[in-house]
């Protein structure tokens, strides 16, 4: 069981100085066990600040974060505890690798948890399997591997802590299309096998449309939309207005509607768009 709940979450940077800036304001959100939620918003919309609250890296200026009903900021111990229950993978996580071998780097998190050696070993192997890192690489230096492999190892380092909630900030940024697809598949399989809750921050709306069960949209520090991909992407015009992308299929559907082709508003994938266009041709309702 791991339910995350944010209640009236507000965070103000550099409070009391001329640089004071409210990053998020009055954000309330419940994320249930096992959900795959995409968090979207343009740079500076507050989404990064939000996710850093979920494992107590940032302490709210107002409001609370509850994990299974308990305030994660109640004391020093709960703040430490939440870091292993809610795993956070930052953007470009390969820049945090530091150990001499791949194995030791993945083991860094479990070792900080003071687990027995046997369990550390088991977790390192499990995490490596989830991200598709071959055990033959364990004794290599992480620094001599390719960018894509480094990324996987860094993600394994967080998965090895067996978090109940896994948050990934742009996990595929900078990878080539094949690398992106592979990593996404790994993440999905991880979620299916472990039943973990997964939060995915992404700029790529096609990925969001394909992967997420729920989409939360941040703008100016607030949650402005929250629903299924079909619901959220049916507001394609509004999303474009606040400087976000929409899935390519939604973008095309929007352009088609403007040219008088009655494609339904909740079309956001290639398959649905193709199906509704073919239906239109044959004069069937779509």
């Amino acid at each position: 069981m791991a339910e995350i709940k944010a209640e009236g979450l507000t965070y103000v940077y550099s409070a009391g100085t001329p640089f004071e800036k409210t990053a998020i304001e009055d954000v309330s959100l419940t994320i249930g066990q096992g959900e795959l939620v995409a968090v979207i918003g343009h740079t500076g919309s507050g989404k990064s600040t939000f996710i850093q609250h979920l494992n107590a890296l940032l302490t709210p200026s107002a409001g609370r974060v509850l994990l299974d009903g308990e305030d994660i900021n109640r004391d020093k111990y709960s703040r430490r505890d939440v870091k292993r229950r809610v795993g956070l993978v930052f953007q470009y996580p390969e820049y945090q690798l530091f150990e001499e071998t791949v194995y030791r780097d993945i083991a860094f998190g479990p070792r900080n948890m003071k687990l027995p050696e046997g369990e550390i070993d088991e977790r390192v192997r499990e995490a490596a399997r989830f991200v598709g890192v071959d055990e033959g690489l364990f004794e290599h230096s992480p620094l001599e591997l390719s960018g894509g492999q480094k990324r996987r190892i860094a993600i394994a380092g967080v998965i090895a802590m067996r978090p109940e909630v896994l948050i990934l900030d742009e996990p595929t940024a900078g990878l080539d299309p094949a690398g992106c697809a592979q990593l996404q598949e790994n993440i999905c399989r991880y979620r299916e096998e472990t039943g973990s809750t997964v939060l995915l921050v992404s700029h790529n709306m096609d990925d969001v449309a394909r992967l997420a069960g729920r989409v939360v949209v941040f703008d100016h520090g607030r949650v402005v939309m929250d629903g299924s991909p079909a619901e959220v992407f049916s507001h394609a015009g509004r999303l474009l207005e606040i400087g976000l992308n929409v899935p390519r299929a939604s973008e095309l559907a929007l352009a088609l509607r403007k040219k008088g082709v009655p494609v339904p508003e909740d079309v956001f994938t290639h398959e649905r768009l193709l199906a509704s266009l073919l239906a239109l041709r044959e004069g069937r309702p779509c």
Partner: peptide
């Protein structure tokens, strides 16, 4: 950034 990332991995 690196400090935050390592803290998230339980570094103290």
């Amino acid at each position: 950034k690196i400090m935050s990332a390592q803290k998230a991995r339980g570094a103290d």
